[in-house]
Amino acid sequence: MTTLPLVKRPRRRSGRDRQLSAGKGVYVALAVVVALSVFPLYWTLVAASRDNASLSQVPPALLPGSHLFTNLRRAFDQADMQLALVNSLIVAGTVTVCVVLTSTLAGFAFAKLRFPGRGPLLGSVVATMMVPTQLGIIPLYIMMANWLHWANHLQALIVPAAANAFGVFFMRQYLVTAIPDELLDAGRMDGCTTRGLYWHIALPAARPAMAVLGMLTFMASWNDFYWPKVVMTQQNPTVQLSLSELASGYIQDYSLVLTGALVSSLPIIAVFLLMGRHILDGIMQGAMKG
């Protein structure tokens, strides 16, 4: 091991220059797929910028109109979108920080420390990834509503999500190869405590994986629907709940509903556009390592 390559992980040559180069047909097919992937979201923008009359004409409108700000104002008035956005931001932000922290700690221990029971404990982490979350939802609701009295409070969304098996496993897989054992041994020789090793070696090395895990966690938390639907009410909603409330009105107000969909998706899509490359890497590397 040389001096400082520990932050960079060994990058597999993807053999890019040896792949078959794509013909026209491949590009056309991919263009169709990308268009189909983007179109519903583009159309959401179109609908959110028009009034209802122009949405019900034949042939349908396919270009954005001029009512976006009117619709936004209506959405913020009608559903409590402001509160919902703030709530979702608090929940997703806190959950992300907690998950990254707990996963880095446990992932480091499982990857690099030896202790009795490590194998079975790690096995139990993997096993819990297989158990469907819905199985425990009723008792979890009973706990929140009857015992802790957290129902309809944000901590009901935050605390149960503060650690998860996927994060621990993800971090463990990353740190196994990202930190050379020799470095830790050297640290030990110099009298470093385990906390010192964690702080000075593991955390810096884990930074790229922390960023990926953080983004994946933030998106999952922001997009979560089932558990907020069970434990929260419309008086204290997340963005997804506000959106579902808008959509369940007696009178279908299409442009209003789709404005809600736009508002709820924009923050996530913005994150994705800024950091998408890392998310791609995270998903593909996660697939390879697993």
Partner: peptide, 20 residues
């Protein structure tokens, strides 16, 4: 990224968009 974009959008938003 274009191909992954649908997966980033929430179940609620996607379903509501498709209902329309």
């Amino acid at each position: 990224m274009g191909v992954l974009l649908p997966n980033v959008t929430s179940v609620a938003a996607v379903t509501i968009i498709f209902v329309q």
